[in-house]
Structure formats: structure tokens, C-alpha cells
Amino acid sequence: MGEPALEVEALSFSIRGAAILRGVSARVPAGETWSILGANGAGKSTLLKCLMRIHTGWSGRARLFGRELESYSQRELARRVAYVPQPGGDQRFPYTVREFVRMGRYPYAGPFGSAHPGDRAAIDDALARAGVEAFADRTLDTLSGGERQKVFIAAALAQGAEVLLLDEPTAFLDYRHRAEVSEILHAINQESGTTILTVTHDVNAAIVMGGHALALRRGEVAWCGPAEELACERRLGDIFEASFRLLDDPVTGLRLVAPQGAVR
């Protein structure tokens, strides 16, 4: 097991008195890929936002590369951790792809928006790795949902962070774009050793991606273990309050799951 990139101990968070996260603990070694699963409202997205310090005022401890998360300035944090928000909402900004990706260099910029020497290389590299060079000069409001998602990943890559947090990166995408996004993430993890935490609803996607899985249920950790071990009827029933059937993929040999219905 490698050095921990992230250590969370008894993290709790409430919004207007409603407890969203209750005593979540986890230890994420550097370089691993983690899937965060759970039903709607389980607190998956909230956990990512707490780690990115979009939400503040949580209790418990969180350490990033051995240092307390609170001790980072927001700029320092953005150099170590990047975040890709959930698709949807208003993401049709009047910026070109290149302008938008350039904004990922903000944590390195000097005053008055001046550039950092490494900016150009980092931006070109991010555009290439996310496969969005072809439409680098188009504005975001002219792109399809799949293209836009890749641009958001490119902007996060431009931050040069060692940890990447993604909130349902493949939601609303067609099969082709879903596969492309998965390939991009896999390559990032393999080539740069980037630690990747992905919130997802898709158990099979988590199994195929491999790595670790953290399952939340009503703000608490329901289960944590190797992703392939998710394929267990009782475990899934416990996490999602739904029933599943297991299917063996004859080609990859992976055990996948098919939802059956709600557990009443």
C-alpha cells in the first residue's frame, strides 16, 4: 500500500441541521482509483465537495498528503486537488475551450491574471490528453454534452493536481463518450499516477474500472473494499436497498450486476 493521498476520519457535515455525512472515514493511498457509490442522497457529491473545500464547516479530520486539509489555502489546495463537477446545470459559458482550460492555471497565476511560465505547456498537454485539441478554439456553448465533459476534464488536468475528484463524469453521456471518458481517466491514472476518486451510480462501471470502492448509505460508510467484490447480492442490497442479479461476462471474466427492482 502506497503513501496515503487522502485520509478522512469521522468526517461529518450538515446543511441547515440535516446531517448529510455522518462519521465518514477512509484512507486513499496515492495512485489508486476509487469509486464512490451509493443511492441518491447518500452524500457522495457532498463528500467530494467537502474534500475540495467547496463546503466548509464540516467536523472531523481530513489530511491531504499528510497535511491537515484546513491548513491549505484554497490556491494551494487547487494545485494538489482538481474537481470535475456533475454535468448539467448551466455550463454553456461564452469562453473558448482554450480560454476555459487556461483558467485551470489560476492557482499558478500571479496578480492581474499574469501567466506562469509553465502555463502554455500545461494547457497544450491537458488539451491533448483529454482529446479536445480539435475544437480548442470553439466556445463552450457550441459543444455537445460529451465534448463539454472532456473539456471540463482538460481544465481539471491543467491544474496539474495529483488528486482528481469527479462527480458522475459519465452521467448523461452516450456509450461512445462514456467509453472515451473512461479511457482518458484510465490513461491519466496509469501515466501520471494521479489518484482518482469518482462518484458514480453505475456499479458495473466501478467494477470495470477496478480499484477500490467506497459505498455510502445515508451519510455513513456502508462498505469499503476492492471494486470487484461489489458483485454480491447481499452487499448491493444493503447499499442500494434494491435487488440485483449477477452476470458473468464471458469475455473479460468480470462478474457484473443487473438491477432487479426495489427492496420493500
Binding site: 467547496i54 487547487a78 486537488v81 463537477p85 483558467m103 489560476y106 497565476a109 492581474f112 491574471g113 491544474q159
Partner: peptide, 18 residues
Amino acid sequence: VGELNLLTTGEELAASRG
């Protein structure tokens, strides 16, 4: 100016960029 650019893309995204 850099901060204003990022604020137009939303506060959460701006926070995540630092």
C-alpha cells in the same frame, strides 16, 4: 480579473480552481 473570470463559471468551480 482571473477571479472574475472564474466566478462567471460558478462559485463551486471557482473554489475548485483555487
